[in-house]
Deep mutational scan, measured.
Amino acid sequence: MTYKLILNGKTLKGETTTEAVDAATAEKVFKQYANDNGVDGEWTYDDATKAFTVTE
């Protein structure tokens, strides 16, 4: 299944996707991606759209 990450960081904005077996796996991938790019903020998840959002 495809999951999307929407980044609303102070220095990094954009979107990326990942293929994962479930939302928990996608969340781990996205949190590592955000951490690697220096984005740390409030996380939300919308199951209807399979989209995670992180806002700094």
Rank of each mutant, 00 (worst) to 15 (best):
E15S: 10
Y3S: 02
T44W: 07
Q32V: 09
G9T: 15
T53S: 06
A26I: 02
I6Y: 13
K28Q: 11
K31E: 04
F52A: 01
E27Y: 15
K28F: 08
V39G: 02
K50D: 02
E56R: 04
E15D: 05
V54W: 04
I6V: 09
T11H: 14
A48Q: 11
T25V: 07
T49V: 07
A26D: 01
V39K: 02
D40I: 14
I6H: 06
Y45E: 00
Y3D: 03
I6F: 11
T25K: 05
A34L: 11
N37H: 15
G38I: 04
A23L: 11
Y45G: 00
T53F: 07
K10V: 14
G41V: 02
E27G: 06
E56C: 06
D22L: 04
K50L: 10
D22R: 02
D36I: 11
N37I: 14
K13R: 11
T49R: 09
T2K: 10
D40V: 15
F52D: 01
K4F: 10
A26T: 00
Q32F: 05
F30M: 02
V21P: 15
G38W: 05
D40T: 14
T25L: 06
L12E: 06
W43A: 00
Y45S: 01
A48F: 12
D22Y: 03
G9S: 09
N35D: 10
A20E: 04
G41H: 02
N37W: 14
V21K: 13
T44E: 10
F30N: 00
A23K: 14
K50N: 08
W43D: 00
G38L: 06
D36W: 07
T17W: 14
G14T: 14
V54A: 03
V29N: 06
D46I: 04
T16F: 15
T55M: 07
G41C: 02
E27T: 03
K10C: 13
A24K: 12
G41K: 01
E15A: 07
Y3N: 03
M1A: 13
L12Y: 15
F30C: 02
Y33E: 02
D40Q: 14
A20S: 06
E19D: 11
Y3M: 02
N37Y: 12
D47T: 09
N8T: 08
E15T: 13
A48V: 13
D40A: 12
E27W: 15
G9Q: 04
T53V: 07
D36N: 08
N8A: 08
T44C: 05
G9Y: 07
T53G: 03
T44F: 10
T25P: 00
K31V: 06
T17R: 08
D47L: 06
E27H: 11
V21T: 13
T18R: 05
Y3F: 14
L5M: 04
D36Q: 11
N35C: 12
N37E: 07
E42G: 05
T17I: 09
K31I: 07
V39L: 11
T2I: 14
V39W: 14
F52H: 01
E27R: 07
T17P: 02
T16M: 15
A48I: 12
T53P: 00
W43I: 03
A23H: 10
Y45F: 06
A20C: 07
A26N: 00
V21M: 13
Y45Q: 00
D46Q: 04
T17L: 08
W43T: 01
N37Q: 14
V29G: 04
E15M: 10
K13N: 09
V39N: 02
D36G: 05
K13D: 05
V39D: 02
K10F: 14
V54R: 01
N37M: 15
K50E: 03
A51V: 15
Q32W: 05
G14H: 12
Y33A: 03
A23F: 13
A24P: 09
E42C: 11
A34K: 00
T2S: 07
K28C: 09
G38P: 01
W43E: 00
T44N: 08
T18K: 04
N37L: 15
D46A: 04
E42N: 09
